[in-house]
Design a protein around this nucleic acid. Structure first.
Lengths: 193, 193
DNA sequence: CTCCTAACGCGACTCGTGTTGCGTTAGAGT
DNA sequence: ACTCTAACGCAACACGAGTCGCGTTAGGAG
């Protein structure tokens, strides 16, 4: 039934999703067209229209695809170090002109399409669940109160960075990443999560 | 030169910006068209194309327009009460299906257009500057450390709510608003801002 | 090796968005 | 009251995104 990894369908999908990534980086979500994606992938546009239909579905599928790649959870020995590492990674991504456009495009897509919304929700749910390990470890070590909500601490760590990028439009750097992590940690230590 | 408030230009602008608001609410940013806006405003589409050109400029102008309306800063007597009030207002807006689409559309527009980005940046800069009053009052009362960054505390209060709406896609309610405010306050009291 | 089907390529078509040239009108200035 | 100009209305047009029908091909099954 379904083609194996070496089949034509799989090759087309790989080429198209790579093209989606490149188009989003260069033109952003609004400038990305099904036709341009098809051309870049070396595939006819009707093929893309039939299998995906719209740009937001392309983005959603690309996000699902990248979710298969594994992500390494930091383990510095302390929660503070781990949270700072996580926040720094986020800040670095948004500070890099080559990587920033893709997550931005995903947010835009998710705000306009249920299909992309699901993909984004799943992606962040998985990421948060993985990242929460640093919190559960800290609780076990006695660094944090026993009833601390692990995912909430992760959210609180990242939120100020995303807030700057998407709401206030201010730049983000590592100093802000550190401050966000420490602020979130202070709330956790106060037993507020 | 410029027409006075009662002139034809001003009437057209009012009608168009009202139509923009309605279209964004009903169809969202992606579904809003210059032509639909013009029809709803009872104006020919070329008029809108000439004065604004694109949807993002319409959104930007509408945002500039609403910025003229004054916003009441809460004053409950304590920083905690004030911050909770601010956070609750944000949460209520996003929880209300009738009000939520507009700020969402503004974020989408700002991610795709420099003109809308400027308008959004100015809007939030003004809002934050006004809201920061509750922090400076608190510092004067001795509730918070003297070097606390007022705007940063406001950002920290609101960030988790926006993070849920735009990134994780989780719902926001008043309980989360209160927790966000208290968490931000804990960081401020720890002298981390 | 042959068959069979799902997926792809191709070109023509539809349709909505945005543009242009020209005539018309509101309304400010005198 | 009259003029003069900026802004608006209108219709025809251009352009690109998305659709459709049909022919072609890759590649798995037997």
């Amino acid at each position: 039934m379904t083609s194996r990894p070496g089949g034509r369908s799989a090759r087309v999908r790989d080429a198209v999703l790579r093209a989606v990534h490149a188009e989003l980086t260069e033109r952003g979500y609004g400038g990305t067209t099904v036709e341009n994606v098809a051309d870049r992938a070396g595939v006819h546009k009707t093929t893309v229209y039939r299998r995906w239909g719209t740009v937001d579905v392309l983005v959603a599928d690309a996000l699902d695809h990248t979710r298969e790649a594994e992500w390494q959870v930091p383990d510095t020995g302390t929660v503070e170090g781990d949270l700072i590492a996580i926040a720094t990674e986020v800040a670095d991504t948004f500070a890099d002109p080559a990587r920033r456009p893709v997550p931005v495009a995903i947010v835009v897509a998710a705000l306009q399409s249920d299909r992309a919304l699901d993909a984004k929700r799943d992606f962040y749910a998985a990421r948060h669940a993985r990242a929460a390990e640093v919190v559960t470890r800290a609780v076990e070590r006695g660094e944090l109160p026993p009833h601390t909500d692990p995912v909430e601490l992760i959210r609180l760590t990242c939120a100020p960075l995303y807030y700057r990028v998407f709401i206030t439009g201010e730049p983000v750097d590592r100093a802000i990443a550190e401050r966000s992590a420490r602020a979130a940690l202070a709330a956790a230590r106060a037993g507020l999560l």
